[in-house]
Design a protein around this nucleic acid. Structure first.
Lengths: 241, 241
DNA sequence: CGTTTACTTGAATGCTCTCAACCAGCGTGG
DNA sequence: CCACGCTGGTTGAGAGCATTCAAGTAAACG
């Protein structure tokens, strides 16, 4: 499989990517490597000179507070440019680690600078992808501030289902999800115990099941309703801009 | 005062803005207007054809959940491009309203498109400013998920103090802040009552005071410590890129 | 001055947390 | 091949933080 395929597939959902642009992206990749689960991809406080494209697997941004607890800030899937922002930000204010075995591609910042110099449309699409990351962050914030634990958990499952379907990693509202409940709880800003109970509730309502690293959504419509999930913010509708 | 001054001042803190770029920005402004407090600047669900630059006053992004409660997603100050992302996002997934009387300038999306076509460095700076908005959002998320109410409140005050100082709106760690505690509570994802008590605590510790729309920080160092505030994420250090 | 808005304070409820024990797969080694 | 140990998940119980309801105060406004 082509390294930039998932990214191109994702970007194409918003605006057509030309063959030239695809070629530009392909030539921007310096090298590819496979990393084990739980390994840091980008260290907190570092100043990367290249950005990392996630080709396969799951990765997460995280931050720790003084008492040692962790908050996960984003869950990334194949096709995500996990630290595209390191191109412009001086220093990583959080770390990124592999939640599962991951294939990642490195894109030197010089290549990105060249893209911004010569390929305005592609630049806008990359910019857009960081804006969508921010939109996702806003949804997480709304959940943390104003939604119940169960609704928050349901919302994240809805989000993952849609984002994974874009890159072809779902089959009939089911997908592999090699993430522990502890990691999930850290994403939602709640304790493992409370997440477990919330999951139980949703399970007993027949909305979905989560067993052995696989999530299967039984009632997609009721799940979205309970989560107050509206995929508009993911900007996946068709249309040129 | 020049309309684009606060923006240029803010951008210059990260990378020098040339006279040409400044001129480009100035020519991008279609018109300026003054709006009253509590008026919507950008409606949720709308598809703006221009972006809004906040010249003076305070504005906030917000979102409502089904039960009617509100979550404020960002507080914007003079110099912020409050809906720059509407340039690339199809539809506003949240609204923006004026927290106080505001002066705003409209920048048509065509002007922004021209900037991305012809001014790569300026484009990167605008992109960067959206990345910093996202970094701020991440800090809010960490607070909501993993910090105490008091620490969260303290952190937001630290953040505002630094951001306002960049555009010259502080004087010795004190600044005007025409925002109610209800709005502040909605920003922090907590109830008005609980915020009030948290503020009492911080006040009684002698960290700051908040009276009649003015916040005065008494002990900047202990306040930062309690908040676990590290301004790195605001990317204000000097240095070209 | 009376009224409104903003904030404060009290009390009861309840959601979420921590502590702790327990269970279930799964891989490893005897 | 089975037992052990480890990781991940579940369940119970008590504590605590945050919420809501409600009443009260004080400054701002007309």
């Amino acid at each position: 499989m082509e390294t930039v395929d998932p990214l191109v597939r994702k970007l194409s959902h918003r605006s057509p990517i030309s063959d030239v642009e695809r070629e530009v992206l392909r030539n921007s990749v310096a090298r590819t490597k496979v990393v084990d689960a739980d390994v840091d991809l980008v260290a907190e406080g570092s100043k990367p000179t290249e950005s990392t494209l996630l080709v396969s697997g799951f990765a997460a941004r995280y931050s720790h507070v003084a008492d040692g607890r962790r908050q996960i800030l984003a869950i990334h899937v194949a096709g995500d440019f996990i630290d595209l922002h390191s191109f412009l930000l001086k220093r990583m204010d959080h770390g990124i680690y592999a939640m599962s075995t991951c294939t990642v591609a490195a894109v030197p910042h010089e290549r990105l600078a060249e893209i911004t110099e010569g390929f305005p449309h592609l630049t806008r699409q990359l910019w857009l992808s960081t804006l969508i990351d921010a939109a996702i962050l806003r949804q997480w914030l709304v959940g943390m501030g104003r939604k119940s634990a169960a609704a928050r958990a349901a919302h994240l499952i809805c989000e993952l289902n849609v984002r994974l379907s874009v890159v072809g990693l779902t089959r009939e509202n089911a997908f592999d999800f090699p993430v522990t409940q502890e990691e999930f709880a850290d994403s939602l800003g709640m304790s493992l115990v409370h997440l477990s109970r919330s999951i139980q509730d949703l399970r007993s309502m027949g909305l979905f099941d989560w067993q052995r690293n696989r999530i299967e959504i039984m009632d997609w419509s009721r799940l979205q309703q309970l989560a107050e999930f509206d995929p508009t913010y993911l900007n996946l509708a068709d249309g040129e801009r």
